[in-house]
Design a protein around this nucleic acid. Structure first.
Length: 504
RNA sequence: GGCGUCGUGGCCAAGUGGCUAAGGCAGCGGAUUGCAAAUCCGCGAUCGUGGGUUCGACUCCCACCGACGCCUCCA
């Protein structure tokens, strides 16, 4: 099927042609595991997931790889990230977000990285981030690829793309790679050195060019360090992605590379320089695709503003005051176009919950009507054709959802066909139920939150039923208020009362 | 300063050089209900501002206003 993608490399939408027919090699920049991943991280990750699943719906075999950055790039001036991570861990231990005993020694970066890697995978699977189910095969960790990084740095030095400076640090020489800047549009002379306010002058003086970036830094004192031809030290940040993409995807040139828009420069620019400098290929990835930032209630998310939320904050109800079903959060994060800033709001979450509830109920209706049997259907079906065509058009998710909603309103007498269509749609959306089609942990359609209530709620429900038998509407209404306050939807039938926990 | 994205009803958000500008949520009216909820039916926008191109633009071009991102380790 014809797919088109907005390519950051050319700043235009291009029709997608993979290197190998029918196969897509795709790499996404993953998290740094020194804290819980936040909803902004997941917005970007789930956009990659949506792209992968859309391509799969379109018939491509997608090999998707995402890295885990567990190398500490932490000893740099005032911003000692290790210290920050350690104190954060201590804080989190106090507040209970990190269970007692989970990290024995908060000063051991490996323990911290391990803990947050597992937390990330757990969150990812809850949110149906497909690649997380293929850990570790498709989710490599940087610390496992240090030899590969050293090897690539050696090649870069041999090929004249890197040099060892007078203080022993290995830098990539941007002047040796004329294409440097082609992705971000930054050209060498226009790069205002230090405009981001993040470079220290002392480091700059050792470089041949201000834009040269670090490949290896010898540093005995660094908390994570490895042997290398340039002394004991640690690798630069960018090199890991170049190495792991090649190692795990098995080729120097890949089809798609995704990430947050902030990674365009310098990270992805540097990846291109390293990978192409090493391989001699004209491209590292043929298509570079970037997601824009997520805002919270109209403001940029930041810890100082108090609107900084991790995925588990949202799921646990720290944002809405009530637990949020993973499908609701997933839907909220994927339902707006990746190239628009998305505004994360409580209202949006409520909206999403309404859609999820509707879909889950619809699915349940179809399941019960068909006994779970579904028909054979493919993209030649007009509804699925429209749905997939929308997604194939640079991931037009809103268009696809419009198709879905219009279809929901149509006749569903052929329930087996409708179930088949819904399943196909859900293979991309993965919300009703969440995690359909993924191996591994299966989360129930209702996540255990949509069925009968707890003992207290059940008691109120029973009281309602009893009161209604006697036409005691006052008591019935009282119980209903309690249930509604407790976050239940209450439906009164002819003889029975059913309750459902709200999804958000 | 450089590079880039964007501006459609209360909110979210598609789309097209020309028949009635998708869809969702919220809201309003009605059916239903003991009252609700759920469900069903019905109702709202001329597309940031000002020019230009054109028989005709919200859709193409220009200017302006506004929002936002990146410019050395934040997705």
């Amino acid at each position: 099927m014809k797919f088109s993608i907005y390519n950051s490399l050319t700043n235009q939408q291009e029709s997608f042609t993979p290197i190998e027919k029918g196969v897509v090699k795709m790499y996404s920049c993953g998290p740094t595991v020194y804290d819980f991943a936040h909803i902004g991280n997941f917005r970007s990750f789930l956009f990659g997931d949506l792209m992968r699943r859309s391509l799969e719906l379109g018939g491509f075999a997608v090999q998707h790889v995402m890295n885990i950055t567990d190398v500490g790039h932490m000893v740099e001036g005032e911003d000692d990230k290790m210290l920050a991570a350690a104190s954060r861990v201590k804080e989190n231990k106090k507040s209970g977000r990190v269970p007692e005993g989970a990290i024995q020694d908060p000063n051991d970066p490996y323990q911290i990285a391990d803990f947050y890697t597992n937390a990330f995978l757990e969150d990812s699977r809850k949110l149906a981030y497909k690649v997380a189910y293929d850990y570790p095969a498709s989710v490599p960790k940087a610390t496992d690829y240090i030899p590969g990084m050293i090897e690539m740095i050696e090649v870069l030095i041999q090929r004249g793309h890197a040099y060892v400076s007078s203080d022993g640090v290995v830098y990539f020489s941007v002047e040796s790679f004329p294409e440097y800047g082609s992705l971000s549009g930054n050209t060498m002379d226009k790069l205002q050195s230090g405009a981001g306010g993040r470079v220290s002058d002392t480091n700059q003086s050792m470089k041949k060019h201000p834009a040269d970036f670090l490949l290896w830094k010898p540093d005995q004192k660094h908390i994570m360090k490895w042997e290398s031809p340039w002394g004991v030290g640690y690798p630069g940040w960018h090199i890991e992605c170049s190495v792991m993409a090649k190692a795990v995807l098995g080729q120097s040139r890949i089809d798609i590379h995704t990430g947050g828009e902030d990674l365009i420069f310098p990270h992805h620019e540097c990846e291109i320089a390293q990978s192409c400098g090493c391989s001699g290929e004209s491209h590292f990835a043929n298509y570079w695709v970037h997601a824009r930032f997520l805002f919270v209630e109209g403001e940029k998310m930041s810890k100082s503003k108090g609107n900084f939320f991790t995925a588990r904050d949202v799921l646990e109800g720290k944002v809405t005051g009530k637990p949020v079903h993973p499908a609701v959060l997933r839907f909220e994060l994927i339902k707006s176009h990746y190239r628009s800033n998305m505004n994360f709001t409580v209202k949006g979450l409520t909206d999403s919950a309404a859609t999820i509830t509707k879909l889950i109920d619809f699915r349940a209706m179809l399941e019960s009507k068909t006994g779970g049997k579904s028909a054979e259907v493919d993209l030649s079906h007009p509804v699925l054709g429209d749905f997939s065509n929308a997604l194939a058009d640079d991931l037009n998710i809103a268009g696809a959802l419009g198709v879905m909603h219009n279809w929901l309103k149509t006749d569903h007498r052929d329930a087996e066909l409708s179930l088949a269509i819904l399943k196909k749609m859900n293979s991309v959306l993965s919300i009703a139920p969440i995690n359909e089609g993924t191996d591994g942990v299966e989360v129930a359609a209702d996540g255990g939150q949509h069925g009968d209530g707890d003992a207290q709620a059940e008691d109120w429900r029973q009281q309602m039923v009893d009161a209604r038998k006697n036409k005691d509407f006052a008591t019935s209404d009282q119980m209903r208020d309690k249930l509604v306050d407790a976050g239940y939807d209450v439906q009164i039938g002819k003889t029975d009362v059913t309750i459902k926990k709200k999804l958000a």
